[in-house]
Simulated scan of single mutants.
Amino acid sequence: MKIESFEQLRQVYPAAKERAIKKQLASLDEYARQYLSLSPFFVLATTNAVYQTDASPRGGVPGFVQVIDSQTLLIPDSSGNNRLDSLQNIVETGRIAMLFMIPGFDETLRINGRALISNDDALLARFSGLERAPRAVIQVQIEDVYLHCPKAFMRSQLWTAEALANRSVMPTMNEMIYKQTNSTGPMETQEQMLARYQAEL
């Protein structure tokens, strides 16, 4: 049966536990701030005006997302592929969702809210210490923040050595994209690709 309403969902799933409801906060507390200071990676989710969604990885040194106050974050937009999928979505809808991770932690931190893109000199100056200065900053106005339980990471064993896949089980990204795009010229080697990426970090 196709489930098409919240009432039908609740016929399949029990009510959320009180703890799961009460843990949702409207601003950063001391634990969320500490988590952000240790996190070098998060997944950024956005949607455009016609509800097409996008999720992209973002990374930097631990704490690269700056906490301005209990309601505001600043994210440097580091160099990427210039498709600008996430940024375009933010311009269209001003909505954002983020899932922060710390290597070795099974718990994650979820933050939802509103966002805007700025190239204000004062905001960009806050990231002057980065090796490559961002061209723009994502300013986040927090609406929801809460810790997410570790079940997904416990199931996947993501951080364990035993869970690491040997990279040779699939072609390199370069080889896959070369075939996906029906390229005919000389193919960049893995070493060349990694060196190019390293120079663009």
Rank of each mutant, 00 (worst) to 15 (best):
E131P: 00
Y146M: 11
A122G: 00
L109G: 12
N119F: 09
L123T: 13
V169S: 04
D121Y: 00
A163F: 03
I138S: 10
D120C: 07
A122Y: 00
R132K: 15
S168R: 12
N112L: 06
S156N: 12
L124V: 09
L124P: 03
R126S: 10
P150T: 11
L130F: 15
A133L: 02
Q139I: 14
K151D: 13
T160A: 04
E162Q: 10
N119M: 01
V145L: 02
Q139E: 15
G104A: 11
F153T: 09
I138K: 06
N166M: 05
Q141I: 05
G129M: 01
R114E: 10
R167H: 08
L109C: 10
L164K: 08
V140W: 03
R126G: 07
G129K: 08
F153H: 08
V145H: 05
I142R: 03
K151T: 14
G104R: 05
P134C: 11
D120Q: 07
D121S: 10
A152V: 12
E107M: 02
R135P: 00
G113F: 05
I111C: 03
F127W: 10
F105I: 00
F153G: 04
C149R: 09
F127Y: 14
L130Q: 15
R132L: 15
A136I: 11
K151Q: 14
A136F: 05
R167K: 13
E162P: 01
G104N: 11
S128I: 03
I142C: 08
R126Q: 15
V145E: 08
Q139S: 11
A133H: 11
S156T: 14
R114Y: 09
A163D: 04
R155Y: 12
L116S: 07
N119C: 05
D144L: 05
F153L: 15
L130M: 15
I117T: 08
Q157M: 13
V137N: 02
A125T: 04
A161R: 01
V145Q: 07
D106M: 00
L123H: 10
I111W: 01
V137E: 03
E143D: 15
Q139M: 13
I142G: 04
R114A: 05
N166A: 05
A122W: 00
D120H: 01
D121K: 06
E162S: 06
I142Q: 02
F127V: 15
C149G: 07
H148A: 02
V145M: 04
I138A: 09
V145Y: 01
A152E: 11
N119G: 03
A133F: 01
